[in-house]
Amino acid sequence: MPQNTPASEHPIDPFSAELVEGLARVVAVEGNRVWLEPEQTTSCGGCAASGLCGAKGIGTAANRLEMRRFQLVNEAQLVVGERVVIGVDGRALLKASGTAYALPLVIMLIAGAVAQHIAQSDGVTMAAMVTGLALGLLATRGIARWLSTRGQLAPRFLRRADAEESCKIS
């Protein structure tokens, strides 16, 4: 099992925040916690089947999903195999995207622009941009830790999924 940070245990009112919903399947129960695996989100509608097809080689969809398993407190007495709807605060999704992608990119471009202005050389600019990217990723690490300790990145259990509820990008 991957070492993931446990989700926040603070309950959330699903009607008070703009939540982005997704489907997940219960894959293990450990005491009062459950391990959930997000369903493969494609437009083909084959999400429910991907958890059952048994194809679990390196690089396959099932293998990727295993890496994204996460824990939740089992308040709803979930059992293995159940499909549930989970939610993430929409603003948290924006903060996470900004932290993971925009910040390293901006630092990298600034480093490149400064290097180009000073050195006027493709090699130096390239080296500066790679360094900027590394620095940006370090900054991302710090901010992500801070957001995580505040419980802002944790998905929440919303409800059990209906049988006809299909996957959606969320």
Binding site: T5, P38, R68, A92, A96, T140, S170
Partner: peptide, 16 residues
Amino acid sequence: MTVRKVSPPLFQMLGI
């Protein structure tokens, strides 16, 4: 790999 290494919660949220 980088997002997963740098922050597992971010990876859970954005790996999709």
